[in-house]
Design a protein around this nucleic acid. Structure first.
Lengths: 333, 333
DNA sequence: TTGAAAGCGCTAACAC
DNA sequence: GTGTTAGCGCTTTCAA
């Protein structure tokens, strides 16, 4: 049987309260008693039961995270950042995946509520009444990656619009004028939409936006491949393709290679995210690097300010820097 | 304030005990009381506090998982399987990463112990006194991916030896005779060693094993690249390279391509794992497919038998099937 | 079938 | 400084 605080108290000849005070430094305790208690604690290897503690303190020391898909590197890098940061604290990380289904998201939020988690991080790309699900959730919440959905909930993100603009401008500066885009699904009204807007606005400014050059996919390799197939069927002259994420870029490149095109000489490609695969490809992929780990760390930092800090947050949108990484899939025309 | 069982009891005009019985179906309750209680429960949206429940039942409904690295797709696919399976149950998943450091593993095990998790899944590739760390951990544990370290702890794995043999035989059957291997680090005495042994034994049997053709790396893209560099420096005639995982294979291929070799015509490559990148590469990678999700699911299944089942396990080693996937990086010589 | 009461292991008023 | 006591919200004997 696990040893309890009661036993420690008896063995040390003090009360449970005193043991608790020694362990938590919550109130002054005379030195000799402190020593005596610590001796027993060490001798027995006593560790307070976290569950009992939670019940008493109304604090679970659990942080929940809800994520669409665990196997997507974009998300797992974020979790990695979160986990690393959390390890410095007394909190543990509870993970739940939604497979992009709103019903599962709702369910997980309920479970987390019952578990009394102390804070929640939501990685989500959508607006499907998440806010409503969170309505009677009275613990701090931080969102990652989406636009701001409420001025109650802080958001950690990058400036997708600016990043897409930067990439489009880069392609223009390399001499491309007919630049296609494989964007995210039209239902992605968050980052996907921003990336598209950045692309479109820059091209419009330069008078070379062509709606017929815009395709879309669900951010998968296969979708990128298929979108590229459609794109090439049109036989319009396209010298560069900007994809809304790396996976689609890799899929699109694959199709182009199969059709015998040389990259970047005949057609250039750019992605978005800079997941590992981007630099492993041949040719390696020009892309926008997102600071995934930093996203996770920042989310935790903000969440803790909310949990422990008494002060109000100084801002609600935490915009992290991105970086344009030029690799082999693009070159001067 | 959250509504408690006491309130429900008062509003329904019954005792707390009865409410508990209704909620848990733990004892018969007369029908009209059951209806009355349920009505109040629904009206208030009452959900029992999981922490209090844990304390009382000595069951946290938490499953812990310790993993080396969250961003490695090999691991995150396993977690995905675990999470999916766990979602069907009343348990939640607590995750901790070790970054391959034994000290962090020890720490996490301690934390999990205090939290009273009901079961632990360990994904680990090493033998660093994990057993000792688990010594006074009295909850069920299941290991994934390693050889069997103790006959107390069940293991879920694939037959790495057989898989490596199969791949080596495949390469032989394609006409290759000088087959190099980029194996895992010598310190990996688990799956890494098995994969090497499979390779070596088959080649020895065919009289074409050459120790000088064996290189090693830490399973990263960079290590694969560097190993390939060394390999080619020797200028021995090698027609195929079998890598202990996909990432190293991709790295090695990258080097070969940079040196102007054509794959698979001039040199063939095979990997191990079948992570997503394997089929996204050009040329796509011949490899051994591991049933990652099934590994996770099986681990959970076994863990639950241990947690809930009264019976003893019928076996301690759960060996899952692998599959050799032939793609473009190999061809008949 | 139902209720009263004890207890899970800890923390935190409140007294001394 | 230290001990006593009353919870935290639930489950589960034990009686009735």
């Amino acid at each position: 049987m696990k040893v309890t605080i009661k036993e420690i108290a008896e063995r040390a000849g003090v009360s449970k309260a005193t043991v608790s005070r020694v362990l938590n430094n919550s109130k002054p305790v005379s030195n000799d008693i402190r020593v005596r208690v610590m001796a027993v604690v060490e001798a027995t290897g006593f560790k307070p039961n976290a569950v009992a503690r939670s019940l008493s303190m109304k604090k679970s020391h659990l942080i929940g995270i809800i994520i669409p898909d665990l196997s997507n590197p974009v998300f797992s890098k974020i979790i990695q950042g979160i986990e690393a940061k959390l390890r410095e604290t007394a909190y543990s990380l509870v993970i739940a995946a939604t497979d992009f289904e709103a019903s599962k998201k709702r369910e997980h939020i309920e479970v987390f509520k019952d578990r009394g988690i102390d804070g929640l991080i939501l990685i989500t790309d959508d607006g499907d009444n998440t806010l409503e699900m969170l309505a009677d959730f009275d613990k701090p919440v931080v969102m990652i990656g989406t636009g701001q959905m409420s001025d109650e909930i802080p958001v950690v993100k990058i400036d997708n619009y600016a990043a897409a603009k930067a990439m489009t401008e880069k392609l223009l500066s390399l001499g491309h004028t007919s630049i296609a885009m494989i964007r995210g699904p039209l239902t992605d009204i968050q980052s996907g939409r921003e990336r598209f807007r950045g692309y479109r606005d820059v091209l419009q400014l330069h008078g070379c936006y062509d709606e017929a050059l815009v395709f879309s996919g669900m951010y998968t390799f296969e979708n990128g491949y298929e979108a590229m197939e459609k794109l090439m069927k049109d036989e319009r002259p396209v010298s560069a393709v900007f994809c809304a994420n790396d996976l689609m870029a890799v899929g699109a490149m694959r199709f182009a290679v199969e059709k015998g095109f040389r990259i970047p000489e005949e057609i250039a490609f750019a992605g978005f995210d800079d997941v590992d695969i981007a630099c492993m490809m041949t040719p390696s992929l020009t892309t926008i690097r997102q600071p995934f780990a930093m996203k996770g760390e920042t989310a935790i930092k903000v969440l803790f300010e909310l949990i422990e800090g008494s002060e109000k947050l100084d801002k609600m949108v935490y915009e992290l820097p991105f970086e344009l990484i030029e690799r082999e899939s693009t070159s001067k025309i």
